[in-house]
Amino acid sequence: MRILLSKLLINYPYMASVVLFIIGASTVLTRSNLFKKLIGINIMESAIFLMFIAAGNTRGGAVPILDQANPGASYINPIPSALMLTGIVVSVSVTAFALALIVRLYDSYGTTNARRIAEMRNGVADR
């Protein structure tokens, strides 16, 4: 138990990311407000970014810039950070696109509640 706890504590970034991921995913799946869904998506993606960056981190590592003065330093792995930058760009574009869609949905249905939108649409479909 103690060992497990200490392992969990040492790996706290991963634990945090797992918690965040669960929060995000459950928000997406359970909330019917479109904005909350979108926020859930963002939380979930942040969790994954966090996990990636934590994986690339070395405790006490140096900034990964080639430095002639200190050639032997252990560097932080820059690849995950670089990748996550791309990931953030992607998530920004998803968010922007989703916001645009929400605006359109609000214009045509007058609500941002997914359930009510579905009800209204089915009502239209059934006539």
């Binding site: 991921f21 997406v28 998506i41 998803v94 989703a98 869609l101 997914a114 939108i117 649409r121």
Partner: peptide
């Protein structure tokens, strides 16, 4: 609406 639902689920998938 369809695009939004798709987007949310697909982004969940990409995550």
């Amino acid at each position: 609406e369809a695009a939004f639902n798709y987007l949310i689920l697909a982004t969940l998938g990409s995550g």
